[in-house]
Computed example of a mutant assay.
Amino acid sequence: MLVQGITGREGAFHAGACRDYGTTLVAGVTPGKGGATAAAGVPIFDTVAEAVAATGANTSFVVVPPAFAADALSESVDAGLELAVSITEGVPTRDMVRVMRAVPPGGTRILGPNCPGVISPGKAKVGIMPGFIHREGHVGVVSRSGTLTYEAVHQLSQRGIGQSTCVGIGGDPVIGTYFVDVLELFAADDETEAVILIGEIGGGAEEEAAEFIRRELKKPVVSFIAGQTAPPGRRMGHAGAIVMGGKGTAADKMEALRSAGCTVVESPADLGAAMESQLRG
């Protein structure tokens, strides 16, 4: 992993946290500071391409301000990285549209922006997820909300239920990876036996996920939809969490998931118990 923005306070802190968890940190990238050594003890390069050529990095962790995040992601795409994870909140939607249009078929998988990242407990993480609440196991977690991801994981771990991989896809209107993308990976993953899906109001990603689950996913799914009391037309938290034109309501999403065979809970406090019930059969 390389970290774009490693010389900033947040970049340095989270680079070290990922390294300490087990991720192989090989480089940092900050334009104009090439040739120096980061606080995390890795070399700094001016460009992602230079870092990849020198270290063989295949993943980027983007920790840069909103105005520069899209360009940083584009640089990762141009360098041919396999994965680029952006935690930055407030990236202009138009910038992300430009980035996603430029990703070639089979090119860099972008996670985020405005996401907590990804973690495979006991193996590695890229992002800001608190590793200490996780434990190794066989439940996959995918969520639009970072804090609700942590809540679900904590409940699972407290019940002795470990996780295979946890993915925060982000809450912005335009992101690089959606529910269906992650569900396809969970469906093909032998280490994942069941899935928790945490959605929220706005957009149609949950309905698309429900259709995929109905057709393709033969593993138990427990789901929660945030924003059940949100008034239409008002953004609630995330930039993408807004009900417009009567579409994207929590009720519609919950019904779609129930119809697909998912166990849908009314409160996030019930996620752990519901999954435990599913696993007991």
Rank of each mutant, 00 (worst) to 15 (best):
T7H: 05
A12I: 05
G16F: 01
A17W: 03
Y21Q: 08
G28K: 02
K33L: 12
G34S: 03
G35N: 10
A36Q: 13
A40F: 00
G41R: 06
V42N: 01
P43A: 09
D46P: 06
A49F: 00
A49Y: 01
N58E: 11
S60A: 15
A67I: 10
D78V: 14
G80I: 05
L81T: 14
L81K: 12
S86V: 12
T88P: 12
L111V: 15
K125G: 13
V126R: 11
V126A: 14
I128E: 07
M129K: 12
F132S: 14
I133E: 02
H134R: 10
V142H: 09
R144C: 02
R144L: 02
Y150P: 06
Q155S: 12
S157H: 05
S157D: 00
G160L: 09
I169R: 04
I175P: 03
G176D: 04
G176A: 09
Y178T: 13
V182P: 04
V182S: 02
L183T: 12
D189V: 15
D190Q: 14
E191Y: 08
E191C: 11
I198L: 13
I198F: 01
G202C: 02
A210H: 04
I213N: 02
K219L: 04
V221F: 03
F224E: 04
F224T: 14
A226R: 08
P232F: 00
R235D: 00
G237Q: 01
H238S: 06
I242M: 11
V243A: 04
G246C: 13
K247Q: 14
T249G: 07
D252S: 15
G261T: 03
T263K: 13
D270V: 07
G272Q: 10
M275Y: 00
